[in-house]
Design a protein around this nucleic acid. Structure first.
Lengths: 151, 151
DNA sequence: ATAATAAAAGAGTTTTTTATCTTTTATTAT
DNA sequence: ATAATAAAAGATAAAAAACTCTTTTATTAT
């Protein structure tokens, strides 16, 4: 009945993160990366990914250039963006605010039964996505100890 | 564009958790709780909630009785169920398995750049949802220090 | 100038999730 | 037996998310 698959981030957001890491890796070599290459490199549907890239570009998380030799690229300041910045751009900041049980009223003064326990978990999750910048990803991937594999 | 709201669990799952806590509270007094009361008490759409209750019932997380004085209720063994059991029944166990970045290949041997950091967070999340049984919820709510409020 | 390239924008479709409505089945009380 | 009650089941509708296709705009190289 409910055969859904529920992950931490939306599909769009997962694609966005993967694309950003992918372009970040290429950007070291002053390369511009086309949407086809991004889609292929991240195992994402091309046209859907194009929409996501437009969104990221509109929100100034990445640069783009039209025409021949065009594509997406990052400058030094773009590489300072973290997963948190990408998540906020695509999925919004509900991960920062919402109660796990979806209660409208859940706060320090009116805590749901798991409020304080979840607060800790959320704190660590936020710390993780904020600390992991694209530059940090580049280093990790370059070390050869971490991978971005789909097959 | 992507104005979506992304929470940890699906809407169905949130409703399920709230309903289970709601019935658990009432079950102490040997009461049976009707679907209308559950929907009202949890701020959920009645017919949608009915479907979810059917599902929980089919999966043996709760008992039900048809006819007059019928409704949903829990026995002592039902009260031993945790949020984790509810989540597994409704959203499945992807929260236990999946990579945050949605990578098909992400393991101890082929870790994504956030694999180990996320593993810790996931461990704590799982610990929390497994430790929080319905019986534990009852105690917390009875203490008067925790609430399940929507307005 | 013009043709080629590649992103941006617009306009869909499909699938999944959420929600509603109706009919059936089981149980109880009269 | 029968009427009333309440969950189970079935069928459908609406909304959101995921995905696709086509046209437009900007840029570059000839």
């Amino acid at each position: 009945m409910f055969q859904q698959i529920k992950t931490m981030f939306s599909k769009s957001c997962e694609y966005a993160i993967k694309a950003m890491i992918f372009v970040a890796q290429k950007s070291k070599e002053e390369q511009r990366v086309g949407i086809k290459e991004i889609a292929k490199g991240t195992d994402a549907p091309e046209h859907f990914m194009a929409k996501i890239m437009q969104d990221l570009s509109r929100r100034k998380l990445i640069h783009s250039a039209k025409g021949p030799n065009g594509g997406f690229y990052m400058d030094a300041s773009d590489l300072k963006n973290s997963i948190a910045d990408i998540v906020k751009a695509i999925d919004g900041d509900t991960i920062y605010k919402d109660c796990v049980l979806g209660l409208k009223v859940c706060s320090e003064k009116n805590p749901c039964p798991v409020h304080f326990e979840f607060k800790e978990i959320k704190k660590n999750l936020i710390k993780m996505i904020e600390n992991n910048t694209l530059a940090a990803f580049n280093e990790k991937l370059d070390s050869g100890k971490f991978f971005l594999r789909n097959k």
